[in-house]
Simulated assay, not measured.
Amino acid sequence: MRRRLGAATIFVGLLLLNGCTTTSLPLPVDNPPLPPDIAPSQVPAPVAAPLRSDQERRVLIARLIAPTVRDREAWAGDLHAAFSRLGIPHAPEIYCAAIAVIEQESNFQADPVVPGLPAIAWKGLEERGKKYGIPKLLIKTAMLKTSPDGRSYRQRIDALKTEKQLNALYADMIAEVPAGKQLLGGYNPVRTGGPMQVSIEFAEQFARTRPYPYPHKGDIRDEVFSRRGGLYFGSAILLDYPAPYDNVLYRFADFNAGRYSSRNAAFQSALGRLAGKPLSLDGDLLRYDRGQATAAPSGVELAARSLAGKLQMRPAEIRRDLLLEKAAQFSHSPLFNRVFKLAEQQAGRPLPRQAMPQIDLKSPKITRQLTTEWFARRVDGRYRTCLGRIEASL
């Protein structure tokens, strides 16, 4: 018998999505963990009967995936395993959030084809050559060397179709090509990969804080390009943190721009209003170099310092709180709360705690002008299409 799902059920799913968390990336030890934004006791009981067995859940996920996708059962199995390993609630609406991202990023291809990848690879090598004073002719000559798979490196570059192939190519070139370590050592242009286009840096950091649950021969970078690894790390970055949003659209924006970017963009908006100086709403509150906050103050930090008297905070205290920008704790910090309190007093009304990050997307793979907002709304549209399949699937 088909069970009818109303708006209340969809709302329940959003609440579950906003509150689910089992682990987070490391936080400063002098800031104790705070409770999730939505505690389990605050989540109403689901309207529809729960799925009781793993088999029922896998069948439902397969039905929520578009019927045109090949190997739906295999995709459903790996997505179910990712949710189970991460402790993410098994709910149709939350499955749809992950499914929407997979559709947008790869259309359910474990190793999606990247148009124009050979040209991108050649350009990257030439740029590295310029950096180290190696002539283009010398690079092309070096690429005539036979690689471990029997083809020359030039042949492999010209035949490139996927990031997994490019990743393997760079690993071989660093190890085998003359001057390869000088030219490419510590450098790999492949920063994202797999069916959810996960950041490899995120995957490696996440695996250091929580052991990767599957047996594997290669490193974590290699696992990102697999279906099971891509879904595991993609589900983690999308769902395995407490997001303080009342609309899943902003979680999709965070997936593209970085965790808590939508919350941080709202903070930038409130701070700029209070300081009388518009700030870029990009979700980055500090300056970073290779993933580490630099000592040089950002525009956000300077704006906050200019209000130190009103905020009743010293520069060191402002810096302390800004260092929490990628953690849930920032929402509860003195800086966050005082900025919003003063900005709301000035505005005479409540101000939103979420805003769309204003970021232009830049990548060799992107050939037209795209933004984080474009990405989030595209995924949101796919998410709502998936929600429409829930009633027919239960």
Rank of each mutant, 00 (worst) to 15 (best):
R4S: 14
G6Y: 06
L17Y: 10
G19Q: 02
T23R: 15
L25K: 03
P26R: 10
P40Y: 03
P46D: 01
A48P: 07
R57M: 08
R70Q: 14
L79F: 08
G87H: 07
C96M: 01
I102D: 07
Q104C: 05
P115K: 07
P115A: 11
L125W: 00
K130H: 13
K140T: 13
L144S: 15
R156E: 09
R156T: 07
E163A: 12
A168L: 12
Y170L: 03
A171M: 11
V177W: 00
A179W: 13
G180C: 02
K181R: 15
Q182C: 13
M196K: 03
I200Y: 00
E201I: 15
E204P: 06
T209L: 13
P215L: 08
D222M: 00
G230H: 01
Y241S: 09
Y245K: 02
S269P: 03
L281G: 03
L285G: 01
D289K: 15
Q292I: 15
E301F: 06
R305K: 13
K310D: 14
L311H: 00
M313N: 03
P315L: 04
E317L: 09
L322C: 03
A328V: 05
H332V: 09
N337V: 12
K341T: 14
L342H: 10
R349T: 10
P352I: 04
R353L: 08
S363A: 09
I366F: 07
T367R: 15
T367L: 12
R368G: 09
L370M: 15
E373P: 07
V379I: 07
L387A: 01
L387I: 09
L394I: 11
